[in-house]
Amino acid sequence: MNFKLKIWRQADAKSKGKFVDYELNDVPAEASFLEMLDILNETLVRKGEDPVSFDHDCREGICGACGLYINGHPHGNFKNTTTCQLHMRKFRDGETITVEPWRAKPFPVIKDLMVDRSALDAIIQAGGFVSCHTGGVPDANSILVNKKDADLAMDAASCIGCGACVATCKNASAMLFVSAKVSQFALLPQGQVEARERVQKMVRKMDELGFGNCSNTYACQAECPKSISVTNIARMNRQYLSARLADPLQED
């Protein structure tokens, strides 16, 4: 298959970026999107040009490293698909494909298609865990969990932290990401002890880092490669409100 590629090139965080056009021919239909970029990079290296940088690692849709804005959609306009699991047979022969990095203020570009998503780690560090220490915990079956709740918690916990929800949101809101972690623990007995602090700390950190508000367009859910549901946002909002009323954070 042949493609015309418009790829965002930016030398580093400080430089100004621009689209550069490439023509790539004889790409196998079975190749993944990232393998197509590998093929492009091989030709660039052979020509002595700078290869395109992009984040990628497991290439099986679970590590969350890859994330390209393809033809105006995070991970391309295909349901439940990460960029690495997207195959070229899904495109038309001869198609022009536009490839950009995530665009969101809290995700500054590092080089080309690679962005800094450490803000998501900072939100988790603000409280996205159960504060148990290693050792001294009860027997696993002494904590019973209703199967339905466990399944819903697992649905929420499936988030891969890729940032597509932020990238697609017109407000660059991280509500889907944050609410997935809040929900996982809200649904489990292990999460109850710190529930009030957790939701408030995580939301506060999210605001601090410059992520926007949610205006209920549900674009995040539509683009999420793991189908994380916006009901998690509703659950988080309920928990946030009741926590604020019952037990506001001291330092607020």
Partner: peptide, 9 residues
């Protein structure tokens, strides 16, 4: 035991 206490689903 440890992982369950951490909330691993």
């Amino acid at each position: 035991d440890q992982c369950v206490a951490q909330g691993v689903p």
